[in-house]
Simulated assay, not measured.
Amino acid sequence: MAELLSDTEIDSALATLSTWRRDGDALVRTVESATFPAAITLVDRVAEAAESMNHHPDMDIRWRKVTFTLATHSAGGLTSLDLELAHRIDELAGPA
């Protein structure tokens, strides 16, 4: 099982994840796409990346906005897997 990150480690990581915010024991980012189909394409691309990592985010789709919530449920909080997936989502979504 992945080890939980300390508050200091999470705060340090958030300095490199400027589009993300901490919400309790999770990281959250909302991406607004130009169109609804573009939002669905992003969800599909993130799903493929998450599947390859065997680490799956919660995704909430509201028209052109997709909110990603990352936490390692089996560990009870944030782990390095969440940071890795956050960076991958940033690559796929592009700048805010």
Rank of each mutant, 00 (worst) to 15 (best):
N54A: 15
V46W: 03
D11L: 11
L78S: 00
A49R: 14
E9C: 10
I10L: 13
H56F: 07
D23W: 00
E91S: 13
D58M: 03
D44I: 09
A2W: 02
L17F: 08
L70Y: 06
T41V: 13
A71M: 08
D25S: 06
R22P: 10
W20G: 09
V66L: 02
T19V: 11
I89Y: 05
H87E: 08
S80T: 13
T16G: 14
I40Q: 12
E9L: 11
D11T: 14
E91Q: 12
T79K: 11
R45K: 15
H56D: 06
I40K: 06
M1Y: 04
D82K: 08
W63Y: 15
A39H: 03
L81I: 01
A15L: 14
L85Y: 02
M53I: 00
H55L: 12
A49N: 04
P57C: 10
S33N: 08
W20F: 08
S80F: 05
E32V: 12
S12E: 07
W20D: 12
N54H: 14
I10W: 04
L5T: 07
I40H: 00
V43Q: 08
R21H: 11
L17I: 10
A50V: 03
A75W: 07
F68M: 07
A96Q: 03
R64D: 00
V28G: 04
T79H: 12
D11I: 01
H73S: 10
L83E: 01
A50F: 00
D7P: 02
P37E: 09
T41A: 13
A38E: 14
S74V: 11
P37S: 12
A38G: 02
E84N: 14
E84A: 15
T8K: 13
L5F: 06
D58E: 13
F36Y: 13
V46C: 00
